[in-house]
Amino acid sequence: MSVISAREFNRDVSAVKRAATHGPVIITDHGRPSHVLLTFADYQRLTGAGTSLGQAFVLAEEVDFEPVRPRDSLREIDL
């Protein structure tokens, strides 16, 4: 993993892009990490961005869900 300052990044963007092909490049601002440059393929692998929206919402397993109404909500009204 490479670390480069924002100033160095601005001077030679092409070199930083080439470095990102070998792994993430951390870009620092005033000595503190502020951004990470990745290849698009690495980004897709990490985020699953290559999947469709429908596939993103499919659960790996079934979940049982029974909502519980709080005691103080929607009480019956006595007229």
Rank of each mutant, 00 (worst) to 15 (best):
D42G: 02
D64A: 03
R32S: 11
M1Q: 07
G31R: 12
T51K: 13
S34E: 14
G48L: 15
D12K: 11
G23R: 12
E76W: 04
F57I: 11
S5N: 07
D64Q: 04
A15Q: 10
R71Y: 13
L46M: 15
A6P: 00
M1W: 02
F65K: 01
F9G: 00
G31Q: 12
A49Y: 08
F57Y: 03
P67K: 06
L74N: 12
G54R: 04
A6H: 08
Q44K: 14
R32Q: 12
L79E: 08
H30T: 14
S14T: 13
V68S: 04
D78N: 02
V25S: 04
V63M: 02
T21C: 10
E76S: 09
F40V: 15
D42I: 05
R75C: 08
A15R: 12
D78F: 01
S52Y: 06
D64G: 01
L74Q: 12
L59V: 06
E8C: 02
G23P: 02
G48K: 15
H22T: 11
V13C: 04
F40L: 15
G23E: 13
H22Y: 05
F65I: 07
A19G: 08
A56S: 08
V16Y: 00
S73C: 08
R45Q: 15
N10L: 03
G31I: 12
V58H: 03
A56W: 01
A19I: 01
L79N: 08
Y43T: 04
T47L: 05
R71I: 14
D42F: 00
S5W: 02
L74F: 08
Q55P: 00
S14Y: 06
T21F: 03
T39L: 07
H22K: 10
D12Y: 01
R32M: 08
R69L: 09
P24H: 13
S2H: 10
F9D: 00
T21Y: 03
I26R: 02
F65T: 06
L46E: 15
T47Y: 01
G50Y: 12
L38T: 11
V58A: 09
D78I: 05
S14A: 14
D78T: 07
R7D: 13
R45T: 15
A6F: 04
T28V: 02
A6G: 10
T39V: 08
V63A: 05
I26S: 05
A20L: 09
G54A: 06
A19L: 11
S5T: 15
L46W: 13
V13R: 12
H30D: 14
A15D: 09
F9Y: 10
N10C: 04
S73Q: 13
D64E: 05
S5Y: 03
L38R: 15
I77T: 14
V3C: 07
R45G: 15
T21W: 02
V68P: 00
